[in-house]
């Protein structure tokens, strides 16, 4: 990287009001630290307890999605010569009156269709429908071996109160890059 790019990267992050960013492998210890840092930052920003809780809750789900996703890749595609697939990106920004959580990670192409369908379903629902859908999945679903309940995205949509902005980019024959933007008022 050219030295000047470090400054450009800094300026870009400054303009985007980034509070915290990370690119790399998401581990359990990393999440513990990031959550602790964000709690301290929100205290410093003097956010209301309500906002603080909302942001914290949504952040936990977004980051644990990344954590579990990495788990999937290790188990299901050990043959992949694609070390990048194990790493993810997340950015937390504060813009005027709202917080933004942005994440980016690789997903298996075969899972991309299911993910799109799930997100479209969630985005088509209003507050009441989301509540019913959450209760239905909570009551009828079961936990995976990894302890995931299939509720993460529904919970993120419910608590953020906004539609989930996302994009799946074609990167090669077997992977897509999943970009997610969550706005929290």
């Amino acid at each position: 990287m050219e030295l000047g790019n470090i400054y450009r990267l800094y300026k870009t992050m400054e303009e985007e009001n980034i509070l915290l960013s990370f690119k790399g492998v998401v581990t359990s210890d990393l999440l513990t630290s990031v959550l602790q840092i964000m709690e301290t930052k929100m205290d410093y920003l003097e956010e209301s307890p309500k906002t603080k809780k909302k942001v914290f809750n949504v952040l936990v789900e977004c980051l644990q999605n990344l954590y579990h996703h990495i788990d999937v890749n290790e188990e299901s595609s050990p043959q992949r010569e694609f070390i990048e697939a194990k790493s993810a990106l997340f950015l937390i920004a504060k813009e005027d009156d709202h917080f933004m959580i942005r994440t980016g990670n690789y997903v298996d192409k075969e899972n991309a269709k299911d993910l799109t369908e799930k997100l479209e379903k969630i985005n088509s629902m209003d507050k009441v429908e989301l509540k019913q859908y959450y209760q239905e999945v909570l009551n009828n679903g079961s936990l995976s071996d990894k302890g995931t309940a299939g509720l993460g995205m529904i919970d993120i949509a419910r608590k953020s109160g906004n539609k989930l902005e996302y994009q799946l980019l074609d990167v090669n024959d077997f992977a897509s890059f999943f970009c997610l933007n969550v706005k929290i008022n």
Binding site: N57, V60, Q64, L138, N139, L143, T148, L151
Partner: peptide, 13 residues
């Protein structure tokens, strides 16, 4: 509870 995640929500149920 102050916070709980979706993995816990199923276990609490």
């Amino acid at each position: 509870l102050e916070y709980f995640n979706t993995s816990s929500s199923k276990c609490i149920l």
